[in-house]
Structures are given as C-alpha cells and as structure tokens.
Write a protein that binds this DNA or RNA. Structure first.
Lengths: 350, 350
DNA sequence: TTGTATGCGTTATCAT
DNA sequence: ATGATAACGCATACAA
C-alpha cells in the first residue's frame, strides 16, 4: 500500500481505509487500554504506512481544551536569554521538565511589544513569566485567561499567580554579612543591576530607585542594606552604583574608574556574578590585591565563578526551571515555592 | 461592566452580550473591511472590557487550516544555537521576519529524538530545518505533510523541499586560493568541523569522511581541495584535521600541538571563525607570527572576526533567516536561493 | 452592512 | 472491545 502524497489525511479516512470506526482509531492513539494490543498495533502500523502523522492538533485541542504548549515569556531577546548563563540554566531545567511530559515550549521573547497584537494569546495551556515583572495590563490579561500562571524570580502583586524564587533578600544579607563583618573600616560599594531606568551606568541615590519593589535587584539591595545596618556601617561609607546591563565590558571600565578613587572601596557587593567577575578584571587591571585589599562577592554561581574563585550565592537554577514546569503542568501544588540558596565561600572573599 | 474571571469566554457569548451576530464579531477581529469602523471599534472595546482575549486559536485553526506557527528544527540544543554567533544571527533574522507577519516560531531543539513521539507533528504550518541534514525517515515524514519545508545550509537529496544556502564550495575555494597562492612552499592544514563521526579531534583520511555529501563541511572541503589542486599543491603538503565541536578551548589545545611540529603548516584553512580564532590564540601562545609565518583564513565572519582582524568569508546570516522565513510563509517563490558570499581580507591573511 | 447555516477533525459519552 | 453521535469554537459562503 503506497502513500498518496499531498492528500490531507484524516482520522476518519484512516478508519474507513482500515475498516474500523473513527473512535477505535482515536483510541489506538490516545487510550491504549481501550482495545486489544494487536488491533492497536495493526492500526498504528497502517496509519504509518498510509502516511498519517497522527491526530490533527487543532481539532484535538478544540475538543480537549489543551494544546500541549506552554508559553514562556522572556524579558529580553532570545539571544540574551541563551547567552546569559543564569537564564540559560533556568531554561534548560525548564525545557527538560516540559520535554519529559511531551509538552512544547513556545518562547515569547521581549514580550511586552509582541504580545499585544499577536494571535498567540490563546494558544498556551499555561504561562511562565521569567525574570522581570511585566506591565500590569499584560499580567492582568494573562491572569484573566484562567490558565496556570507561574512567575519566576518575582511575585505579582495581585491576582492568583504563583511564584518560584529564592529569598533574594536573605541571601544578599548573608553574603553582605560575610563580606563586610571581618573588615575593620569597611568602605562598601554596591554594584546593582537595573535599579533605575537610567541607561547610563552611574552612582545613584535612593530616590531614583525603580518603583518595582518586587524585582530581584530590589530584594538583593534590601538584603545588603539590612546587613550594613546591622553591622553599623555608616551611610557615607556606602556607595550604590547602577548598571543598566549585565554586560562585562561596560562594568569593567566603570569598575576601573571606581577602584581608582583615592578612598576606594574595600568591599564590593555585586548583584550578579558577571558584574563581580568584571570587577575582578578591573582590580587585576589596577593591580589591586583580592581579597587583601578588596573583598568581592557575587550572586548566582555561574560556572565561571568557580573557575575564578569568586565567593558567591549559589541558587538552584535548573531546579527552579523544573519546579516552574511542574507547577504549570499541575504536577506540583499550586503555591509559592521558595528555593534555598547557599553562600559559597571562595578566595575572592574568604 | 465588570469581567467575570474564570469563565471561559467565547465569540458566541460576546455576540450575545453585545447584541450582534457571531459573524459580525468574527469580522471585527479578522476582516475590518466588512463592517463600519465605529461598530468594529465598539465591539473590540466591549470584548476587551469583558475580558475576551480574541478567538480561540484551536477553533480558528481547525477552521482555516492554519495555526500561525512555524516549526524550526535545530540540530543542537537551544543553548548551543543561541550562544553560537552564527546560529544566533540566523535565528535573529528568521525571528524578525516571522514576527513581522505575526507568526510564531516553535523551536524544536535536537529534534531527532524529540520529534518521534511528540504530538507536535501536526502543529506548524511549515518547517525550517537548520544546519544539518536530518535522518531520512524524519525528513520524509515532514515532507509528507505537504507543508512548506525549507532547509537551510543543506539540500535534501529527495522530495520537494527548497533550500536557502550559500555556495560553500565556491567561497571556500576562493578563500583557499587567496590564502595559498602567495606562498612559495605551501604547507596547508585544513581545520574541519564534524567531517567524521569521530568524537575525538584528530587527523583524518579521506575514507573516513561522513557519507553526507551535502553537509556544509563537505562542501567547504571540496572548495579547499579544488583550490589546492588548481595551485598544484602536493597532497603530502596537505593535512586534514577534524574537530567534532565548534569549541574554542579544544581547538586551541589541538592547534598548539599541530603548530609545534617541526614541519609546521604555514597556511591554515579553517571551516569556521571560531576554529580560526582558536588557531590564532594557539599561534600567539607559541609566538608564531601571523601572517608572516602563518596565514589563517576563517569562515562565517562573526563579529569577533573583525575585532581580531581575521580574514574570512562573509555570509549574510540574518538575510538567510529572512529569506527562509519569507519562503516558508510563501512570500517568496518556492525555489532554492543561493546567497552570495564575500571574501573579507584582513590582517591574518592579507 | 449584517445574520444564518454548515462543517473543519477530533474526543467523549453512551450504547451495543 | 467496538461503533454511533454530539459537541468543541470558529470562519465563511450565501442570503437578506
């Protein structure tokens, strides 16, 4: 029996060709327990031979109400998300978990603009929003669809979504305590990420901070401050710097500037490992000894952090992805998950 | 009018609420010219207010036969494809073009395994297969669906798919001519990528070459050889090396070994810029002067190639993505497109 | 410009 | 174990 190329095959036609009813063919694909093993195999083989690639997804979805697709809303571009080691690991964990359930992921990059006009809106069975709070209007639209909605690394301030994250504040506080406590006369610089809407890197004051209380950076900042207050570090010994991008080159240049000042800092609290590594580069450029003259802590524990002996906060990135997937697929209870972090003490800040 | 969260809204219900017929609401979404501008806007506004996010995709797809999704089959993992500058640029061009038509891309990584059992099969309206020939059985399955099928950087040896690519052989030949011609006593090493199934890097003989005649690497190899024959370079002055991965670290170590030999090569023909850059690193490690003692050419023209003054073959990667998209969306004639390349002469091989 | 009727391909319920 | 039938939500030809 040869295949008839080009024809649009349907389950109904298969049934007729094979000489059974539509329901039986459908069962052969979806409910193996509803028919004899041999019949099922005969049907599957015939379909294969006839060139039928399985039930039409649109029709099946219309009937079952499920598409087998999870939408992943990303804050940045695809290339950023895959070249950044943090996002990369998260997406890897997420992808694996979805794969395991034979669910596909529809990546929706820089979703703010795209998601307005597109028809994507009703495709996914659920959503995972990664990394950065979306505009409220968009979040509301998503929530209103009544599908599982999981936010990662931030918490929506309303609605009934669920969040997977680490306790950034606590972890940052712990890191700062470790870094600052042993120093007799601490001069602390905090290197923050996207704390304001400024597009230039620079020193910032409190009042300039972004309104988004729930962002990762804000939580980490609060943690650092909590530690600094506890250790009674005077405010004028603390400077807060903002970097608009997690970009090593830029940070390195800026850090050289900061570390060249006469009263240069002796502790650097960095909100990401990339920033911290760039700071280490800058220190090396200037011949500043780490950790003797400068203690540096990072955040995230990307692979390079280990190679370069950076003290940092480890967070289970792949695990985060896995859990987010399991929640959205309803394999985990629909409630907030707070994953634990671990301070990894290495040479940059022993 | 407040929205009733949780309810599943349908176009029919909207019509009833608003007091028009289903068809009119449908037209408001899909055919602006079929009703008065004001009515259309009233309907859209009402739907928005009621929390209706637009027509259900499954139902619409079932009716129209289109899903608005293009499947992109990738040879490697997602993270590879986005961290590799070549793949990255291609996907960027592709993504932009699809976006422009409000079409989504479903990324199907390392598709060999996944694609067997998954339900994805019937979702996309068309396919783009990137970079590496798939198993024939899979290709046949795809072709049999009767949807537009575009292969990029290789040509399927059967069926009715269409291909977007550059003339790798011609470009490689040109590069080799330029590199080798000026050298009086050329000793040439070819650094190839995935020319055999070996997982270790190493020297290879002809008979070990992969059977896949159509792969990018094979075309480039033929191009190099064509040039070497024309220039009458003796076979024993040519060595052919294979690298299983486009991985800089590994290549650098291997290249150091090769360049340490007593009769070391004075021309390096590299099948990718990454490999070429690693070779430059190795030359620097050994204090070998480029281009005086060693001429190096790459392939692809990734951004770093310019920074490091690597002579290489430029190919229009984003353009390739754009064209592939346009073909699969039937905005371009359904026929092979061969894009032109350009040899960029820089310091590594003037 | 608007409304009516039909069917897209499938799955689930029920009956056999 | 298998078959008949009714939805699923929508777009479109056609009628008004």
């Amino acid at each position: 029996m040869e295949k008839t190329a080009g024809r649009k095959l349907t389950l109904k036609e298969m049934a007729e060709q094979i000489g059974v009813s539509k329901a039986t063919v459908s069962n052969a694909f979806n409910r193996p327990d509803q028919l004899s093993k041999q019949l099922r195999e005969r049907i599957l083989a015939q379909c294969e031979a006839l060139g039928y690639s399985g039930p039409n997804m649109s029709a099946r979805s219309l009937r079952t109400g499920k598409t087998g697709i999870i939408g992943v809303l990303l804050a940045d571009t695809l290339s950023f998300n895959f070249s950044d080691p943090v996002a990369n690991q998260f997406l890897e964990g997420l992808g694996n978990a979805l794969d395991k359930q034979h669910v596909n992921m529809l990546l929706l990059p820089s979703c703010e603009e795209n998601y307005q006009s597109s028809q994507v809106q009703t495709i996914p069975d659920g959503y995972i929003v990664y990394g950065q709070p979306l505009k409220e209007s968009l979040m509301r639209r998503l929530e209103h669809q009544g599908k599982p909605l999981v936010t990662v690394d931030f918490t929506a301030s309303f609605g009934q979504s669920v969040s997977v994250h680490v306790d950034n504040q606590k972890a940052a506080c712990e890191a700062a305590m470790h870094a600052v406590a042993p120093v007799e006369h601490p001069r602390v610089s905090i290197f923050g990420l996207r704390l304001t809407s400024a597009i230039q890197a620079g020193l910032i004051a409190d009042k300039e901070l972004f309104g988004i209380e729930e962002s990762i950076s804000r939580r980490r900042l609060e943690g650092y401050r909590e530690a600094l207050v506890r250790l009674k570090v005077k405010p004028d010994m603390i400077s807060l710097w903002n970097f608009p991008h997690n970009d090593q080159q830029q940070v390195r240049v800026m850090a050289r500037g900061i570390l060249s000042a006469p009263e240069r800092p002796n502790v650097l609290l960095c909100m990401s490992d990339k920033i911290a590594l760039a700071a280490l580069d800058a220190a090396r450029d200037l011949g500043i000894k780490v950790p003797q003259e400068l203690r540096v802590v990072g955040f995230d524990d990307i692979p390079e952090a280990m190679e370069r002996q950076l003290t940092t906060v480890h967070q289970p990135l792949r695990e985060k992805g896995r859990i987010a997937a399991d929640i959205v697929l309803q394999l985990q209870s629909f409630e907030d998950h707070v994953l634990s972090t671990e301070l990894l003490v290495r040479n940059s800040c022993p």
